[in-house]
Design a protein around this nucleic acid. Sequence first.
DNA 1: CGTCAGACGGCAAACGGTTGCCATGTGTTG
DNA 2: CAACACATGGCAACCGTTTGCCGTCTGACG
Lengths: 335, 335
Amino acid sequence: MRSSTIYDVAQAAGVATSTVSRAFSNPDRVGAATREHVLEVARRLGYQPNPHARALVSRRTRTVAMVVSDITNPHFFELIRGAEMRAKASGYTLVLVNAEESPRIELEQIHRLTRSVDGFLLAASRQPAEDLLQLAAGHRVVVVNRRVPGLASVVLEHAEGCRQMVAHLASLGHDSVVYLAGPRNSWMAASRWAAIRAAAAELGLRAQRMGPFAPTVASGGAAADAALTTGATAAIAHNDLLAIGVLRRLADRGIQVPQDVSVVGFDDIFAADLCTPTLTTLGGAHADVGRAAVEILLNSMEQPRDHAPELVVPSELILRRSTGVPGRSRGQRPA
Amino acid sequence: MRSSTIYDVAQAAGVATSTVSRAFSNPDRVGAATREHVLEVARRLGYQPNPHARALVSRRTRTVAMVVSDITNPHFFELIRGAEMRAKASGYTLVLVNAEESPRIELEQIHRLTRSVDGFLLAASRQPAEDLLQLAAGHRVVVVNRRVPGLASVVLEHAEGCRQMVAHLASLGHDSVVYLAGPRNSWMAASRWAAIRAAAAELGLRAQRMGPFAPTVASGGAAADAALTTGATAAIAHNDLLAIGVLRRLADRGIQVPQDVSVVGFDDIFAADLCTPTLTTLGGAHADVGRAAVEILLNSMEQPRDHAPELVVPSELILRRSTGVPGRSRGQRPA
DNA sequence: CGTCAGACGGCAAACGGTTGCCATGTGTTG
DNA sequence: CAACACATGGCAACCGTTTGCCGTCTGACG
């Protein structure tokens, strides 16, 4: 049962293939009556255009690739979901690529897919900025949760978020914080540390950084131990997974959160509201980030703009029970 | 910077395009020396075959689509991850489709993608069995976590798992369980209920079913209330999300888990080990399920077999603190 | 009534590969 | 040494669209 082609339709409708083609992709180019007729015949024959034949000549695949640094991280799910929905809404297909935290795999996959997709969403890319710029010279790219001057990007706001986070800790009476950093080549990790350090300076807190740590629950043990050696009363983990790992280790060591030490994370993953104690974290509409990234990509295909947009999606500090007044025996819920 | 084609390579190497083509896709067909030379030239020119041109004639796209009923459900992440990795390992690309729990969207998307992918992984499909069979007549399909006679499938074992679950509850002293069912058109929901009911009969427990409920945390409230009306001392939720919602609602109503009622779920999602109390659940290697599904799909392309394999991946009952002896004031951890 | 501008439809050349078939050269066999 | 099989490379058709260009027809205009 070979499915029908434009030829079949053309023959059945008694017109040329070009007319059939145009009836679909350029409706104004054919007379209304002809168009109706062609479409009717096409429907009857169950005609479905072959995307490859189409892509071959038009050089548009109606497909975008999203490459994430680690598909295992629940934080990406929302991002992926937003991107998938937005893509689908425009009749685009989303292909998913897991870079497994490896810049090499990331590049390999991008290379492999260049000819099959119209553009790339690079989420939390681990590439050096110059490599990204070079990539963007040959491909349509928008980076997600990373800012690279000259590239289109959408990030969840975090500078101000970090400030609020530190201010929150300061208002509880903390006077020193430790940032448990993410991977060395993570732009986010660097950016957050800069913001935390600046906020701490401004508000008169001591700030230190430990790490880097893999952004996983498993790394939380080492991170917790490292945090304790600093004597800080509050630990800001690179993300919620790490924070949850920290909570676990602290519980194991008999250290009370938040009485002995406060813990905060980033991302507001689903589990942040379930762990014990529940986790104070910087959340935001991740799905919107994914959505916006696809949108920017699609727009850039319609009219290639000179200026690469840099979108910032607002974040929100979510206070839960993992932060409190230091040194009090009963944890106290702020505000 | 138009990237180089097979023609460029052929010219630069002083051979015909067919030779270049074969050097890649059918190496034995060209002499060793020529092949080396061609590959060398290709490398130098940065030649990258165009997948669409290739697909157009060979009718193979090296792409598989995974359609999941709800991309939001963390349970699918592992599945997706396993599938992505297996696909990548064979040089295949995974496209992700979210059916948003709607059989209509599911069909639409499948239809839209037929020509762009080599096959479909249908995870927790909501289609009626006959529709799936019809689909499979035209497309290469393997259903995941669903069994349809005549179709290739891989499911996480759950019949025996349900039996163990009920036996576990029986051994704690429960004498009646309620199954909080998943969506009406979910094969899994039906299958689990059958297994639970059979096991209960065998072990002399009363079993009831309530629902259907959407498999989300939000539905847990209604599910919990429904469970309580039955008087059952143990509730088996359709999945962990629902179970977590149930736990929440029970806590709000001041009902103690597991003293007053035991709760168990399915999937062993990450959060199951974080909620309060931690959740007893039927887990398993979901990534293996995804991996196996892709593998079956790829194999079926190499040699179309007459018999559709039906793989069952072992599951594992994970005991945590949400199950215990009923009516005891102190929760007791079994075994 | 001659001209001319659209509007509309068709022809045919791409797009970048794959593959069946044929031609040639080489080694093997009787 | 003739006959033949096989290894190797090239030719050209084909996959299913899109699209630039051209021809024709129609209606409007002067």
